[in-house]
């Protein structure tokens, strides 16, 4: 219904990107429970996604199980794997845990590569198209509300206490192992849901699609968006899903650079208020330089847009990490600060 409404003024291409944003939002916010809220470092999220996706697709493909039940089964199996990996590995900390989760995701991938019943190395083709924009939207909203409330419940505060200081948390009577496993189980559950949505949307699953790169992509979303904040994860998922697509053509590149430039201007304004003249000169020169490149390099950019896309994408990520390590949500907060002050001033 919402999809039909949107299709009046959006192409199915844009609706598809919105759907992927939804799916990756679920992945990002669930990973944020582990990495952002509990302070554990997991880089195996694609493994849980794969379990959910394959189990759900198996059920709908071979047993014609209704989509919702299959998704639930996929999510529960992913949660079970979360438990399975959580119990033995959560004695590990930091780097060791990261390597263990990575290893776990690799095991899942390699097992799937050798399971001929789900296509093995040739991939699982012919999955019915059971999820569309509407299902993705509804499930994303439900997941967000559930996880949002979870992070703000007593459970969520217990997770945060582990992140801030594990020993102190234990002294205060928080059973840290229990809560760490819980974080893994909850996050895996939602990653499983996302996996099922992904498989039934794309109608195809391939084990190599759930390798390290996919995990890193999800991790990137929460790092870019701002860790330990679900809104940040949401922002990260939106930006990182749209960015590679918007960089596909010249206009998109111009728009993206313009947005980045304007945001840069706004940040530098706040940081360089003492010397307005110098600041103005600086942004003017930067603006002219960017404009010059875009106008005189137009032919070149159009010609090599395909290759340049990922380069620009990486440069933007690097710039972001250098100048805004607190993520997009930190950026939003910084930019809102003067506005907030002014609003407060008016009220007073």
């Amino acid at each position: 219904m919402i999809e039909q409404l949107l299709s009046n003024f959006m192409s199915s291409y844009q609706i598809q990107i919105l759907s992927f944003i939804g799916i990756f939002t679920i992945l990002a916010i669930s990973l944020d429970i582990i990495n952002g809220y509990t302070g554990q470092f997991s880089i195996g999220h694609a493994g849980f996604m794969a379990v959910g996706g394959y189990v759900a697709a198996y059920l709908t493909f071979y047993h014609q199980v209704p989509f919702i039940l299959a998704t639930l089964a996929g999510a529960l199996s992913a949660a079970f794997f979360g438990l399975l990996i959580g119990i033995p590995t959560l004695r590990l900390r930091g780097d060791y845990l990261a390597i263990a989760t990575l290893g776990f995701a690799e095991i899942i991938r390699v097992v799937l590569l050798n399971l001929d019943v789900v296509g093995g190395a040739r991939g699982f083709a012919g999955i019915s198209n059971l999820s569309n924009f509407d299902t993705v939207l509804i499930i994303t909203i439900i997941s967000f509300i559930v996880l949002y409330n979870f992070t703000r419940s007593a459970y969520g505060r217990a997770l945060q206490s582990i992140r801030e200081d594990e020993i102190a948390a234990e002294c205060m009577g928080v059973p840290t192992t229990y809560f760490k496993v819980l974080a893994f189980v909850v996050a895996a559950f939602f990653a499983g849901i996302a996996g099922s949505l992904y498989g039934h949307y794309l109608m195809f699953l391939h084990p190599n699609d759930f390798g390290l790169l996919r995990s890193i992509e999800i991790l990137l979303m929460i790092v870019l968006g701002g860790m330990g904040n679900l809104w940040g994860a949401l922002l990260g998922a939106i930006v990182l899903s749209i960015l590679p697509e918007s960089l596909r053509n010249y206009q998109g590149i111009v728009y993206t650079i313009a947005v980045v430039y304007l945001v840069g201007v706004a940040i530098s304004y706040q940081k360089g208020k003492q010397n307005i003249a110098r600041w103005l000169a600086g942004i003017l020169i930067a603006g002219l330089a960017v404009g010059f490149i875009l106008i005189y390099g137009k032919e070149l950019i159009i010609r090599y847009a395909g290759q340049m896309r990922m380069i620009i994408y990486s440069i933007l990520l690097i710039l972001m990490m250098i100048f805004q390590p607190s993520g997009l949500i930190g950026l939003a907060r910084d930019l809102a600060k003067p506005l907030k002050e002014r609003l407060r001033g008016v009220k007073a």
């Binding site: 844009q14 990107i17 939106i238 749209i242 697509e245 918007s246 206009q251 728009y255 947005v259 939003a332």
Partner: peptide, 15 residues
């Protein structure tokens, strides 16, 4: 967030 989302979706709906 709406503003952010709008700016980005514009950048890509525009083209």
């Amino acid at each position: 967030i709406t503003v952010f989302a709008l700016v980005f979706s514009l950048s890509f709906a525009g083209c």
